[in-house]
């Protein structure tokens, strides 16, 4: 989990252009100003590219926080 969180934090910093972002499993879009609905799409695209995975659209819609994203990545990678 932690190693993914570090990688994801970097990815978020780059996509959202905010170097102060540090993610934890409970982080939600409410906690990060730049994480709005359009940037959310860019984040998904970037995560899929980085980890070379493809999520199901319905699965993405169920994410509630960063923890859900990490679980989805781990599930896809295993």
């Amino acid at each position: 989990m932690n190693e993914y969180l570090n990688d994801l934090s970097n990815l978020f910093r780059e996509v959202l252009e905010n170097d102060d972002i540090t993610l934890n499993p409970e982080t939600t879009a409410n906690d990060i100003e730049e994480w709005d609905s359009i940037n959310h799409i860019y984040l998904v695209v970037e995560i899929e590219k980085t980890y070379q995975i493809k999520f199901k659209s319905s699965q993405i819609l169920e994410w509630k926080n960063v923890g859900d994203i990490v679980s989805a990545i781990i599930e896809k990678k295993s």
């Binding site: 609905s37 359009i38 959310h40 799409i41 998904v44 695209v45 659209s57 993405i60 819609l61």
Partner: peptide, 21 residues
């Protein structure tokens, strides 16, 4: 509209980049 129309559409169109959005 953002949650129930835009987001599902944009996620489905996500591979088309800005055109999709």
């Amino acid at each position: 509209l953002n949650d129930y129309v835009f987001t599902p559409l944009a996620i489905n169109f996500r591979n088309h980049k800005k055109r999709g959005i």
